[in-house]
Design a protein around this nucleic acid. Structure first.
Lengths: 260, 260
DNA sequence: CGGCAAATTGACTCCACTCAAAGGAGGTGG
DNA sequence: CCACCTCCTTTGAGTGGAGTCAATTTGCCG
């Protein structure tokens, strides 16, 4: 349950017992991860600064808010959640990180980890010293560009979720986003394995866990989904998109009123 | 009302009529803007890629969502708002940009402007080709670091506003954030000139305009603020901070119940 | 002064939250 | 292997805070 990036004891930490250098060139995620766009030779240089840690167990923390910031991580397998604890002691989930995602880029400006990051299932990461990344990016324009792209898309992502759609809409958008993420990696976009609890989803979507439960049940009754404990099957993608992006219930009601 | 960064007609645009190179070294914002941290010589090199546009008038757009992305801007004077229009045609305000702030970094990953950016009052900006910035940043490590810092803190900022506090809390947090921003620039942290309308504040805080109005009125009755049309004076910073960060009304009620 | 948009205030509604209880899955130990 | 415990999930009932709709009021600018 200790976070691993504390500079002082990094070498003692169990995760480092089995550290190995990783061949990015042979990694299945090569095209969805930081070294994408690098030439073969550049990829080889990049590999020199990548360390692979032994897998994290569920509930094991990768970072803790306030820790010193020396490393970023990319997800190889599994799923992490990033969260903060607010002044009322309540957990606020900020992000779910899937394979290919980069973790820790929000810490640059303070030199401290801003969030807690914890594995939701058995998960593996690659480990990069931020200083090495920065200095290497000055010599590999494509790496620099990729870093800017990753940060830029995180900003866009956060901005795009800034609206305040209805609960139905939020849940639908969440499922679609997960589905697209899975599809891009070649997994099924219809059979979604959800590593996170209803509470985590609720916190992430700024809703109550009971609301998530109710919405999923209703979607199931409407034939849009089949819902299991850690599994959601999308039966009707079209209807789900309609819920997500077109008309909220409130608008439907308003539209009906306007028609009469 | 045209946006200015369209590559094709950039030279025809009225804003370019009076373009001049700007001496960052003599700019009052030097320490709060991109060239901060650069040596005198480096600042001189940086100045070569900075163009200053003639001032923007209120309601004049700097960018439009979907425009090609070739330039970023830093605010010299005035205030801009960044917004998107959602599928229901409703405006969602994402950011208010004040002097020293960098505009456009969310566009990197798509090569398209992601948001609309419009002046709320007469405002001046500095204008930078993104390609020049990127290539220069490879030779000026401090500039590269500053770019990463700016993007990183925008991510943190968006993450930190991800919670769902009560309307009172949101308004209080908003005023405190504006106040701190003004203080840092040497302006009064108590007499706040608000360039944006109640509707803009409401959209930014994901509340209704009427709610903003009600909350401000109540704060005034409680002696926390004095409220004018485009002016808010903070009378009691302590009480405001208490509202912002400690206990929501709901929690107070819950606490009282628990005490009995 | 008059016209118009922004802001305020009131009345009512509704969606999501809270509280509460029951059902289900997974893990642990005897 | 089963009993037990705990945590997660589901479902119901009632509440409340913010939204919506509507009517004024305020302030700006020609």
């Amino acid at each position: 349950m200790e976070s691993v990036q504390s500079a002082d004891n990094v070498c003692d930490f169990a995760h480092y017992a089995g550290l190995i250098k990783l061949a990015c060139s042979r990694c299945a995620l090569h095209d969805r991860c930081l070294p994408q766009g690098l030439s073969a030779g550049e990829t080889h240089r990049f590999e020199q600064i990548v360390t692979r840690l032994r897998p994290f167990q569920p509930r094991e923390h990768l970072f803790r808010a306030g820790d010193e910031f020396h490393f970023i991580a990319t997800v190889r397998t599994g799923c992490f959640k990033s969260y903060v604890t607010n002044h009322k002691g309540k957990q606020q989930v900020l992000e779910f990180a899937f394979p290919g995602d980069v973790i820790g880029l929000d810490a640059i400006h303070t030199h401290r980890q801003m969030t807690n990051v914890v594995a939701l299932e058995t998960s593996a990461v690659c480990w990069l010293s931020i200083e090495s990344v920065f200095s290497m990016s000055r010599h590999l324009p494509e790496l620099q560009a990729e870093l800017f792209r990753v940060m830029s898309s995180r900003i866009s992502e956060l901005e795009s979720t800034a609206g305040q759609p209805s609960a139905d809409e939020r849940v639908a958008l969440f499922l679609i986003s997960i589905s697209e993420n899975f599809s891009r990696r070649g997994d099924s976009g219809s059979e979604l394995h959800l590593a996170m609890s209803r509470y985590d989803i609720a916190s992430y979507l700024r809703l109550a866990a009971e609301t998530i439960s109710r919405v999923l049940s209703r979607f199931q009754n409407d034939g849009v989904l089949r819902v299991g404990r850690n599994q959601v099957s999308i039966c009707d993608h079209e209807k789900l998109k309609k819920i997500a992006g077109q008309e909220s219930n409130r608008d439907l009601a308003a539209t009906r009123r306007a028609w009469q």
